[in-house]
Design a protein around this nucleic acid. Structure first.
Length: 221
DNA sequence: ATCCCGAGGG
DNA sequence: CCCTCTGGAT
């Protein structure tokens, strides 16, 4: 693959982001929430499921356990019954109970607003923390999941694209260095949506990809 | 069959 | 660096 200057690469990245904004419609389905605590819970539950399915269980969940204290005191069996259809219900239930207890014990029942604090909570990793920071507190963050790793790799938006073990934190740093903080949350979201809808792991639909003109992966797909 | 907008643990 | 956890949609 031909050499590309740093400058050219940066310009391509921004142009491709613009195309994603232009041609990828905002997904009609997103997590329903009205408080940071609700977003945190919904995001923890969303692992290996879809937002739509999470939205089918959260109304009952939020209604029955309005505060972190309520959730911390929930009976595990009751909690599991509510979130069962999402899968991984046992680990998710334990995460929620531990998370609620930690919020009560260490954060006065409030959701903390820093990465360092958020990732100490059970069930909360960097990806989840960045989603909460960006969408509940409007703190710039760049959530990196498997879609982001794959798509940025194919676009060569990260430098270690040919590595068998890409480092999510390194990707986060590299992408953040190339975009304005105000764009991070939206960019990540669009890469995730695009990765799921078009840039599949197994069966990439390059023919219908808005980035096919500039994406180096088209040639090898 | 295969995949899903992860995180914790060995 | 693996592995596991799980049900539902397609």
């Amino acid at each position: 693959m031909p050499r590309e200057s740093k400058r050219a690469r940066l310009e391509r990245m921004h142009a491709e982001y613009a195309l994603l904004v232009e041609e990828i419609p905002e997904p009609k389905c997103a997590l329903n929430f009205s408080t940071p605590l609700q977003l945190l819970i919904a995001t923890v539950l969303s692992a290996q499921t879809t937002d739509k399915r999470v939205n089918t269980v959260t109304p009952e969940l939020f209604d029955r356990y309005p505060t972190a204290a309520d959730l911390a005191n929930a009976r595990p069996a009751d909690l599991e019954a509510i979130i069962r259809p999402l899968g991984f219900y046992r680990s998710k239930s334990q995460h929620l109970l531990g998370l609620a207890a930690a919020l009560e014990e260490r954060f006065n029942g409030e959701v903390p607003r820093t990465m360092d604090e958020l990732v100490t909570l059970p069930g909360v990793g960097r990806k989840t923390a960045n989603v909460v920071l960006g969408n509940a507190f409007h703190v710039p963050g760049f959530p990196v999941d498997t879609h982001v790793m794959r798509v940025t790799g194919r676009l060569r938006w990260r430098d270690d694209w040919n590595s068998a073990h890409p480092d999510p934190v390194r990707i986060e740093r590299e992408i953040c260095a190339c975009f304005d903080p105000s764009e991070w949350t939206d960019l990540s979201h669009r890469l995730i949506v695009h990765g799921r809808a078009v840039c599949h792991a197994r069966k990439p639909d390059c023919a219908h990809c808005p980035l096919q003109a500039t994406c180096p992966f088209v040639a090898v797909a």
